[in-house]
Amino acid sequence: MESVRKKDVPVVTVLDPKFKYEVAREPGGENIKYCFQCGTCTSGCKVAELDSKYNPRKIIKMVILGMRERVLSGDFIWLCATCYTCHERCPQDVRIPEVMNALKNIAVREGYIHPAFRAQAELIAGHGRLYEIDELANEKRTDWGLTEIPQGCPEVAEIYGITGLFDLLSREVGGKT
């Protein structure tokens, strides 16, 4: 019991009571304060069924309590499979997958991007898409009677430049570039 207490009960001084407002200002996070902790999301969640690290009801409660660092630095926010089952069923229209996206967006700004997502973002910046279209790919397409696709799409990197995403991708923990 003693060890459980030490692990799970937050120390009051590290709570940020304004965190829920920060999340509510983020695109997708608008409805977080409507949550009344019924647990419909977690009970129908296929990820939660297999991996106890992911528990959407608990994550939302942690946000509402203000456990900012624990939430943003945790791997668990990256475990939402965005299947939208909870989104359909939530009686309070919390839009949980969108809340998870809002949390991930804040986490990225704090330097906590998950490596798999960083890798994807970098690939897309470089090729304009997840998989490079090289000469070999286009040769195969032509053999199949399919149209060729241009290699690369520089406008994607331009968009990253406009929105500041390149800077965000190089951020370290603490939000410093």
């Binding site: 998870m100 996206n101 991930k104 967006n105 897309i124 898409r129 149209t147 994607v156 929105t163």
Partner: peptide, 27 residues
């Protein structure tokens, strides 16, 4: 009809940066 200038839809970026994902999709 194929449109050769299409890029990534933006989906993989939504978790990382909402605005960028929306702009990729809007483009």
């Amino acid at each position: 009809v194929d449109i050769p200038e299409f890029s990534c839809c933006g989906y993989p970026i939504k978790s990382v940066h909402h605005e960028t994902a929306y702009l990729l999709a809007a483009r």
